[in-house]
């Protein structure tokens, strides 16, 4: 498919999904995770308030409870996805050097995945092994 907009057919332009090559995917996923984040954030704050004055055994019991563990896993997954999309927009807005932008976008992805997976691993370990 030609990258020249002057000779591209309307169909080719549609298939090309615009300059970002991803169409509305970014926008939509950002909204879907934002919607999910509203109830999950409220659940997260409630769980944190329950944890606030708990000792070690109490904290293990709270995080290890299936309902809390599942809510925390959902929150971490949705939040990590949402924050990766949001930080991507910030980077694209302010970093104009192509090389630096590429590096920062990669670090952004690495950070979000690390945060998400490390949290998920810890929650699962607490749930399964105590």
């Amino acid at each position: 498919m030609s990258k020249n907009p002057d000779i591209a057919t309307p169909m080719a332009r549609v298939r090309g999904l615009g300059a970002a090559r991803s169409g509305t995917g970014h926008f939509w996923l950002s909204r879907v995770t934002a919607v999910a984040n509203v109830p999950l954030t409220i659940a997260f704050v409630i769980i944190v308030l329950l944890l606030a004055k708990a000792d070690y055994a109490g904290a293990i019991k709270i995080v290890g409870h299936p309902v809390a563990a599942i809510l925390l896993l959902l929150f971490v997954g949705s939040a990590a996805t949402h924050m990766r999309l949001g930080m991507q927009v910030i980077i694209e807005d302010y970093v104009h050097s192509e090389g630096t932008k590429l590096v920062l976008l990669m670090l952004n992805t690495f950070f979000a995945i690390t945060v998400g997976l490390a949290s998920a691993y810890a929650i699962l370990k607490i749930g399964f092994a105590g």
């Binding site: 995080v63 990590a80 945060v115 490390a118 810890a122 929650i123």
Partner: peptide
């Protein structure tokens, strides 16, 4: 800020 959460969870685990 998510680092606060990961650090807490990993420490607890």
């Amino acid at each position: 800020g998510t680092l606060l959460l990961v650090i807490f969870l990993v420490a607890l685990a």
